[in-house]
């Protein structure tokens, strides 16, 4: 069985995989990094979003072997080494952008990719960008609000409580 080598959150990661081993399964089962989640089998829900070489990717729709030599970023790498949450994570906490938390890693990773490409997105741009991220708990209201807040935009006019 082939070996795969990649960098995950800045650290070298290696493992023995099958051809059919998905990147998400390599992360979760071989590396024990269970922050990335699997919520569907048709590549739609986005709970599995990670970054591969700086681009948002659905890790359930990519084989581990295809990430050979790649730099992979997962939600586990978003907070600082001392546990301080990233701006996006803190915004999700502050604005109640998560309830059960299952979709949240994918939302956070998609948000990070969005804000890298579009630092001050409009509400419509945020909603459009989340086309591939499904949430069943929040109704998206506080997720969109959190992402706009994380981008430094004023969200005080968005109805809260």
């Amino acid at each position: 069985m082939p070996q795969v080598n990649m960098t995950v959150n800045g650290k070298a990661a290696t493992g023995t995989v099958e051809g059919r081993t998905l990147l998400v399964d390599f992360l979760r089962e071989t590396l024990g990094m269970t922050g990335t989640h699997v919520g569907c089998d048709t590549s739609q829900c986005g709970a599995c979003v990670v970054h591969v070489n700086g681009k948002a990717v659905k890790s359930c729709t990519m084989f581990a072997a295809e990430a050979e030599g790649a730099e992979v970023a997962t939600v586990e790498g978003m907070a600082a080494a001392d546990g301080t949450l990233s701006t996006i994570q803190q915004a999700f906490q502050d604005h109640h952008g998560l309830q059960c938390g299952f979709c949240t890693p994918g939302m956070v990773m998609s948000a990070a990719a969005l804000l890298r490409d579009n630092p001050k997105p409009s509400e419509a741009e945020v909603r459009d960008y989340l086309e591939g991220n499904i949430c069943r708990c929040t109704g998206y209201h506080n997720i969109v609000k959190a992402i706009m807040a994380a981008s430094g935009q004023d969200v005080s006019s968005i109805a809260a409580e």
């Binding site: 590549s43 986005g46 979003v49 681009k55 948002a56 990717v57 659905k58 729709t61 990519m62 998609s110 990719a113 969005l114 960008y129 989340l130 086309e131 591939g132 991220n133």
Partner: peptide, 9 residues
């Protein structure tokens, strides 16, 4: 097409 993550692959 699809969504941003799908479009990246």
């Amino acid at each position: 097409i699809g969504d941003p993550a799908v479009r990246n692959r």
